[in-house]
C-alpha cells in the first residue's frame, strides 16, 4: 500500500529538483504549487462565475430576441450565437490541453496533469455542443444534417481527440502513466487546431469561411457582431469557472486521498 503512487505528495517539494528550471520554469513553479493555486482559485472564483452568468444570459437574450434576423437565413441565424462560441471554445480548450501537455512532459507539473484531466470533459462537452448546434443549423440552411467536408470532419476529429484524452488520462492504475500518455496525445492532437482553422481556406468546403478574422474586417453587421461577442465572452467565463471549480475539487480530492493513505500507514 505504501508504494502506491497516490501517496506521492502533491506539494511544492514535488517540483523542486537539482536542475535549474530557468526563469519561465520558476515562474511556473510559483503557480504550479497546488496549495497556492487553491488560494488563488478561491479568490478568482466570483470574478469568473458572475461575469459568466450575466454575460451568457445577456448575450443569449440579445441574440434570441433583440438582434435582427438575417436577410436570407431568417431567424435561423440566431443559432450562430451559441454555435460560434462553442466552436471557439472547443479549439481554445484543446489548446489549453496541449499547453498542459507540454508543461506535464517537460516540467513534470502535477498541477498540469490535474488541470488536463478536468479540462478534457468540459472541452468534449463544448465540442459536442458545437457539432450539435451546427447540425441543427445546417439542416434548415444547407439542407443536410451533416456533410463530410474538411471543416466538419476536422472538428469531429477534435471531438474524438477529446474523448481519447478523457479516457486515456483515467485508463491506468498508475495516474502518472495515464497523465504521460494523455499529455502526448494532447500535444500531438494539437496539429488538428490549425487544420480546423484553415480548412475553410485550404480546401473548398460546404462550411462558409470565417466571418471574423484577425486580419480583416468582420463580414457581419454590428447588430449581430455585438451579441456574438457578448455570448463568446460569457461562455468563455463559464468554461473557465467550470474548469476552475472542477480543478479545485480535484486538488481537494487528491489531498483527501493522501491523508487517508498516510493514516492507513501510520
Amino acid at each position: 500500500m505504501s508504494a502506491s503512487p497516490l501517496a506521492e505528495p502533491v506539494s511544492a517539494q514535488d517540483h523542486g529538483s537539482a536542475t535549474n528550471p530557468g526563469r519561465i520554469g520558476s515562474l511556473l513553479h510559483r503557480y504550479a504549487n497546488p496549495g497556492r493555486f487553491l488560494r488563488l482559485s478561491e479568490r478568482l472564483s466570483p470574478f469568473l462565475v458572475w461575469p459568466a452568468i450575466v454575460l451568457s444570459v445577456a448575450g443569449m437574450v440579445w441574440g434570441l430576441f433583440l438582434s435582427p434576423a438575417d436577410w436570407q437565413q431568417g431567424d435561423a441565424v440566431r443559432i450562430m450565437y451559441v454555435h460560434v462560441p462553442a466552436a471557439w471554445l472547443a479549439s481554445l480548450g484543446y489548446a489549453a490541453l496541449a499547453v498542459c501537455g507540454v508543461l506535464s512532459l517537460v516540467w513534470r507539473h502535477r498541477l498540469a496533469d490535474l488541470a488536463a484531466a478536468e479540462i478534457g470533459p468540459v472541452g468534449a462537452s463544448v465540442t459536442f455542443l458545437c457539432l450539435l448546434s451546427g447540425s441543427l443549423w445546417g439542416r434548415p440552411m444547407w439542407g443536410a444534417w451533416w456533410v463530410w467536408d474538411a471543416r466538419l470532419t476536422s472538428v469531429l476529429v477534435l471531438f474524438f481527440l477529446y474523448l481519447g484524452h478523457v479516457a486515456l488520462i483515467r485508463a491506468f492504475d498508475d495516474p502518472s502513466r495515464g497523465a504521460r500518455a494523455a499529455a502526448i496525445l494532447a500535444v500531438a492532437g494539437a496539429v488538428d487546431l490549425p487544420i480546423i482553422k484553415f480548412s475553410v481556406q485550404w480546401w473548398n468546403t460546404l462550411h462558409q469561411p470565417d466571418s471574423i478574422t484577425l486580419t480583416g474586417a468582420p463580414t457581419m453587421s454590428f447588430s449581430m457582431l455585438w451579441p456574438l461577442l457578448v455570448c463568446t465572452l460569457g461562455f468563455s467565463f463559464a468554461f473557465a469557472a467550470i474548469v476552475n471549480t472542477r480543478l479545485r475539487a480535484a486538488i481537494l480530492e487528491t489531498r483527501t486521498r493522501q491523508l487517508l493513505l498516510q493514516g492507513a500507514r501510520e
Partner: peptide, 24 residues
C-alpha cells in the same frame, strides 16, 4: 422561422452548461 432548430440549439447549450456547472 425555424423555431424547433433554434430552440433545440439553445436548449442543448443551456442544458449542457447547467449540468456541467451544477455537477462541478
Amino acid at each position: 422561422t425555424h423555431l424547433p432548430f433554434i430552440a433545440g440549439a439553445y436548449a442543448a447549450t443551456i442544458g449542457v452548461f447547467l449540468i456541467l456547472s451544477v455537477s462541478a
